[in-house]
Amino acid sequence: MWEAGIQHIELEKGSKGLGFSILDYQDPIDPASTVIIIRSLVPGGIAEKDGRLLPGDRLMFVNDVNLENSSLEEAVEALKGAPSGTVRIGVAKPLP
């Protein structure tokens, strides 16, 4: 389960991407759907250096692409398709 509020994070995407990987996970509230979760951070990558994204965070959007009900493929496309420079990411943090 995740917090209702969405944290807005801006990262600078370079030639090596944003520095994290994702996975799809069965939604605990709606078993028929999936949620997109941050799986891991690349050591020394943009996301790890920034410090705000953590494994277990739920990915909600990338720039103007809503990922609340997306497939893993759609989420990967949104991340890979984001141009270099500032990328806006929304995440919901896990409940304590």
Rank of each mutant, 00 (worst) to 15 (best):
M1E: 07
M1L: 03
M1T: 04
M1I: 11
W2I: 05
W2G: 04
W2P: 02
W2E: 13
E3R: 04
E3W: 04
A4I: 15
A4M: 10
A4N: 12
A4C: 08
G5I: 13
G5W: 05
G5M: 15
I6C: 09
I6W: 12
Q7L: 06
Q7I: 15
Q7K: 12
H8V: 08
H8P: 11
H8F: 13
I9Q: 00
I9C: 06
E10T: 08
E10W: 06
E10P: 08
E10Q: 12
E10L: 11
L11C: 03
L11R: 01
L11P: 00
L11N: 00
L11G: 00
L11V: 08
L11A: 01
E12K: 12
E12C: 11
E12I: 14
K13T: 12
K13Q: 14
K13W: 03
K13A: 12
K13V: 09
G14W: 04
G14A: 06
G14Q: 12
G14D: 11
S15I: 08
S15K: 14
S15L: 14
S15G: 14
K16D: 05
K16F: 06
K16M: 10
G17E: 06
G17C: 08
G17K: 03
G17A: 05
G17W: 02
L18R: 00
L18K: 00
L18A: 03
L18I: 06
G19L: 01
G19I: 01
G19F: 01
S21T: 07
S21N: 15
S21R: 09
I22H: 01
I22Y: 02
I22M: 08
I22A: 04
L23P: 00
L23Y: 13
L23W: 15
L23E: 10
D24T: 05
D24K: 06
D24S: 05
Y25T: 15
Y25H: 14
Y25K: 15
Y25Q: 15
Y25A: 13
Q26L: 07
Q26C: 07
Q26V: 08
Q26T: 14
Q26E: 13
Q26N: 15
D27V: 12
D27A: 08
D27H: 09
D27K: 06
D27Q: 11
D27G: 10
D27R: 05
D27E: 13
D27L: 08
P28C: 08
I29M: 09
I29N: 14
I29R: 13
I29P: 13
I29L: 06
I29W: 10
D30Y: 11
P31M: 08
P31L: 05
P31A: 10
A32H: 12
A32K: 09
A32R: 14
A32C: 14
S33E: 08
S33H: 12
S33V: 14
S33T: 12
T34S: 13
T34V: 09
T34Y: 09
T34I: 08
V35F: 09
V35S: 15
V35M: 14
I36F: 05
I36V: 13
I36G: 01
I37M: 14
I37N: 08
I37C: 14
I37A: 14
I37V: 15
I38F: 02
I38W: 01
I38Y: 00
R39P: 03
R39Y: 04
R39V: 03
R39W: 03
S40W: 03
S40K: 13
S40D: 08
L41F: 04
L41C: 07
L41M: 14
L41Y: 02
L41G: 00
V42T: 13
V42P: 01
V42Q: 12
V42F: 08
V42G: 04
P43H: 09
G44P: 00
G44W: 03
G44S: 09
G45F: 02
G45D: 06
G45N: 02
G45M: 05
I46G: 14
I46E: 12
I46K: 12
I46P: 11
A47Y: 00
A47G: 04
A47W: 02
A47D: 00
A47H: 00
E48G: 05
E48R: 03
E48V: 06
E48L: 04
E48P: 00
K49L: 15
K49S: 10
K49Q: 11
K49Y: 08
K49A: 11
D50P: 01
D50E: 03
D50T: 09
D50R: 02
D50F: 02
G51R: 04
G51T: 06
G51S: 08
G51H: 06
G51P: 02
L53Y: 00
L53N: 00
L53A: 10
L54C: 06
L54Q: 14
P55V: 11
P55G: 15
P55R: 11
G56M: 10
G56I: 00
G56E: 03
G56S: 04
G56H: 06
D57V: 06
D57F: 13
D57Q: 15
D57I: 02
D57P: 01
D57A: 13
D57L: 10
D57E: 04
R58W: 01
L59A: 00
M60W: 03
M60G: 01
M60K: 07
F61P: 00
F61W: 15
F61R: 09
F61K: 12
F61D: 04
F61Q: 09
F61V: 11
V62G: 00
V62W: 02
V62Y: 03
V62I: 10
V62H: 00
V62R: 00
N63G: 14
N63M: 03
N63W: 00
D64E: 05
D64P: 01
D64V: 02
D64I: 01
D64M: 06
D64R: 08
D64T: 08
V65M: 07
V65K: 09
V65I: 08
N66D: 09
N66C: 09
N66Q: 15
N66P: 07
L67I: 13
L67T: 10
L67F: 08
L67D: 00
L67H: 03
E68D: 08
E68C: 08
E68V: 10
E68Y: 10
N69T: 14
S70T: 14
S70W: 06
S70L: 07
S70Q: 08
S71C: 13
S71M: 07
S71V: 12
S71L: 07
S71P: 11
L72I: 14
L72R: 13
L72F: 14
L72Q: 07
E73A: 13
E73C: 15
E73Y: 11
E74C: 06
E74F: 06
E74S: 13
A75Q: 01
A75E: 00
A75L: 01
A75M: 02
A75W: 02
V76A: 13
V76I: 10
V76K: 15
E77I: 11
E77N: 09
E77H: 11
L79P: 00
L79R: 00
L79G: 01
L79E: 02
K80P: 00
K80Y: 07
K80E: 07
G81W: 08
G81K: 12
G81L: 12
G81I: 11
G81T: 11
A82I: 10
A82Y: 03
A82D: 03
P83D: 04
P83L: 08
P83Y: 06
P83Q: 05
P83N: 08
P83S: 12
P83R: 07
S84Y: 07
S84C: 13
S84I: 12
G85L: 03
G85D: 04
G85N: 07
G85M: 03
T86N: 10
T86Y: 07
T86P: 11
T86Q: 12
V87S: 03
V87A: 05
V87P: 00
V87D: 01
R88G: 07
R88S: 09
R88I: 07
I89M: 09
G90Y: 02
G90D: 03
G90S: 09
V91Q: 02
V91K: 05
V91M: 07
V91F: 07
V91I: 11
A92F: 07
A92K: 14
A92V: 13
A92M: 14
A92L: 13
A92R: 10
K93G: 04
K93Y: 03
K93M: 03
K93H: 12
K93P: 05
K93V: 03
K93E: 03
P94M: 15
L95F: 11
L95Y: 11
L95V: 07
P96T: 05
